[in-house]
Design a protein around this nucleic acid. Structure first.
Ligand code: FES
Ligand code: FES
Lengths: 145, 145
DNA sequence: TTAATAAAAGACAAAATTGTCCTTAATTAA
DNA sequence: TTAATTAAGGACAATTTTGTCTTTTATTAA
C-alpha cells in the first residue's frame, strides 16, 4: 500500500507529534528507538518532510525535530503525498497510465470507490488525533519490546 | 497498491479469459501486445500462475495460455495472492510486524475498514465478469493506441 | 520422424528502493 | 570563542523489483 519510507514517515511524525511542541524537541535517535526504524534512512525522510514544512527541525544542542500546533492539525494525506506522491490516491489500480472515466480499466468502478474511501480516510485523519490516541496507550508504534 | 507484476498478471489473465476457452488459446506475444506489458517478464508471471493453476498453458504448435470455465469463475483475490501474497489483505498499514486488535497501530481502526472493503471487492469480483465487460467495450487494458 | 512452434527455465542486467557511513553546517552552552 | 551537539547532505552499498536474452523442453502438424 505505502512504501517503507512512507510507513516510517507516518510512524515518525506521529511519535514526534506526541512528544514535542514549539518548546520541546526530539532527536533522530530517540525517534528511531521508539518506532523501530533505521536511523539514517529515517533521517533522510525527515529531511524531506522538513523541507516540505510537515515537520520542523533545529540543529545544534537541544535541537531536534518537532511539530507546532498548526502542523499537528495536518492530515496523514499530506505525509503520504510528500513521501510517495499522489498515485495511491489518483492512480489506476491496474497500472494504466492514468485512471479515466472514459477509458477505464476493468476494475475501475469497484477500485475507484475503495481508493476514494482511502483518500477520505487519510484526509480526515489528523496527526494529532493519532498522537493523542498513542499517548492514551490505545495504540503502539512498534511491537517488539 | 499492487506490484507491477501483479498489475500485469491481472491484465493478462483478464485478456486471456476474454479470448480463450478449453479449445482456443493465446500466445504470450499476443497477450503482451494487448496489455502493453514486457513479454519475458509477463511470461514468468504467467508461469507462476500456471503452476498455481490460475491459468492453463500448453506448449507446442497451437499452444498458448487459456482459462477453462472453472478458472474464469475465480476471483481477482486469487491472482493477487498468487503474485503479491496476502499482505495487502491482512498486513498493517503502517508496516508493524502484524496487524493486531490488541496492539494496534495508530491508524488500525480506520485502515482495517478500507482493507476489508478492498478484500471483499477483490473476492467478489470474478475474472469472467471483467472479461465480459472488456468484450463489451466497456473497459480497456491499455491506453496508448 | 522431422521441423516448426510455443511455453519453461535459467542466467543476467537495469532500475528502484532501502539502508549505511562519513563529512559538513548550524546552533548553543560553557 | 570554543567545544559539544544535532540535523543536513553526499557518497555509496545492499536488496528487491523489474526487465531482457538465450537455451531447453514439450507438443503437434506435416
Ligand atoms: S482506470 Fe483503472 S482504476 Fe480507473
Ligand atoms: S495494526 Fe496497523 S492496521 Fe492493524
Amino acid at each position: 500500500m505505502f512504501s517503507k519510507a512512507c510507513e516510517y514517515a507516518i510512524r515518525a511524525v506521529v511519535y514526534i507529534a506526541s512528544e514535542t511542541d514549539e518548546t520541546k524537541k526530539v532527536g533522530i535517535q530517540e525517534i528511531c528507538d521508539h518506532i523501530e526504524a533505521p536511523q539514517h534512512f529515517t533521517a533522510k525522510i525527515l529531511q524531506t518532510l522538513s523541507r516540505k514544512h510537515i515537520v520542523n527541525s533545529q540543529k545544534g544542542v537541544n535541537g531536534g525535530f518537532f511539530l507546532d500546533s498548526v502542523q499537528k492539525k495536518k492530515s496523514l494525506k499530506n505525509i503520504v503525498e510528500a513521501v510517495d506522491g499522489d498515485q495511491v490516491f489518483v492512480g489506476c489500480g491496474l497500472g494504466l497510465k492514468q485512471c479515466s472515466e472514459t477509458k477505464p480499466c476493468p476494475i475501475h468502478n469497484q477500485f475507484k470507490d475503495i481508493r476514494n474511501r482511502l483518500t477520505k480516510m487519510m484526509e480526515s485523519t489528523t496527526i494529532d488525533a493519532l498522537a493523542i490516541r498513542l499517548l492514551k496507550g490505545e495504540s503502539v508504534l512498534m511491537q517488539t519490546k
